[in-house]
Write a protein that binds this DNA or RNA. Structure first.
Lengths: 193, 193
DNA sequence: TGTATTGTACAAGGTAACTTAAACAAGCTG
DNA sequence: CAGCTTGTTTAAGTTACCTTGTACAATACA
């Protein structure tokens, strides 16, 4: 009764590394950095925790690699539209969220609240904050309520995107983005009133 | 040159316990449970970490005591209005947030995302979810967008409250609540469209 | 004055998790 | 086949933090 299935899947180095990053993204997305052990990551990837050290020098470096890749993909998907045209930014955000929901949740549910790694996500955060401010500066009189809206609009956008994921991604990103824009408009009007 | 100031502040037991809970609330509010050491809490309180064990059996019990107290105060402030009248719920929420901003942030920025302690906050979470659902059931046709709004409205309310704290609590809670209600209305219309 | 309470200082035990090492098995490529 | 790479198993080293114990100083109060 020899085990016919090899039970051991070997992968070339680069491919294994990507698979480890995928697994780590899912594992860390559940409970964040501190509450996730290397054994959790290894189990998610189907390997032993020892193998992690053949690809990453430490837990922190693994986490940084995960965050960096997630940020890079997000910037690549959303970034192009931020320069000129805001109408395309939210659909692009939704497409990016749908393309890798776990990474999206990891970045904005956990990493954004972990002071140790906050600066990694800050590239994305500051970009969205700047978009929001540029969008609101003309629509809302300066003052505390403008500050309120500037902080709230990015948060609302992200929460709306996550709720859209949780609701099963109804409609297509373009129409969903129209609803989110409408919700944002509600915040703007509330801040202007 | 004897030290004229005693440099040691002694407190009766009950009072010290309250002070420790206050300090622990502030300390945990910064980075959550896992990332906050007992030494951080002790330093925040101005005592040695040993003294914590004279009042709480363990770190987990201390954290639970902090969360319980925060939830109890919140329920006491907000709870009465949830039975019948929603117009008073959001002002009450804002007053509670203003009364103890650190506790508010701790509950909804950190504890809500810590699986180990999620059930402690669930009393508050489920209450707000039920209010949202009751409020939206009639206004939005059933379907994924109703689910979207049901998840998004509580999140928006909390984020709006935190942004209101960060903006320096402009206006009074009643008028601020009107703005937040207006923003919520935007989400409802977005989900109904 | 004396006693209980509060707090400190210092030390040590325990545990969970991160990290590294060594020996072995098995696939891929020349 | 020979050798390199990938992966496993097992175990041990290391660190950080939680937890407990003992001895001592200082304050409040009868």
């Amino acid at each position: 009764m020899a085990t016919d299935s090899p039970a051991v899947k070997r992968l070339p180095r680069a491919q294994r590394r990507e698979q480890l990053l995928d697994a780590a993204t899912r594992a860390f997305a559940r409970s964040g950095y501190a509450a996730t052990g290397l054994d959790d990551v290894a189990a998610e990837a189907g390997v032993t925790h020892v193998i992690l050290y053949r690809h990453f020098a430490s837990k922190a470096e693994l986490y940084l690699a995960v965050l960096d890749r997630a940020c890079a993909r997000l910037s690549q998907d959303v970034g192009p539209s931020t320069g000129e045209f805001d109408d395309n930014a939210i659909p692009a955000l939704l497409r990016a969220a749908a393309a890798d929901p776990e990474a999206f949740r990891l970045l904005f549910r956990h990493a954004a609240r972990e002071p140790e790694f906050r600066d990694v996500v800050d590239s994305v955060r500051s970009a969205s904050a700047e978009i929001a401010h540029r969008h609101l500066r003309e629509a809302i009189p300066a003052g505390p309520w403008q500050q309120w809206a500037t902080q709230l609009v990015p948060a609302l956008t992200l929460e709306a995107a996550i709720a859209w994921l949780d609701a099963g991604q109804p409609d297509d990103p373009v129409h969903a983005a129209q609803r989110i824009s409408q919700a944002i408009e509600g915040v703007i009007q509330a801040a202007s009133g």
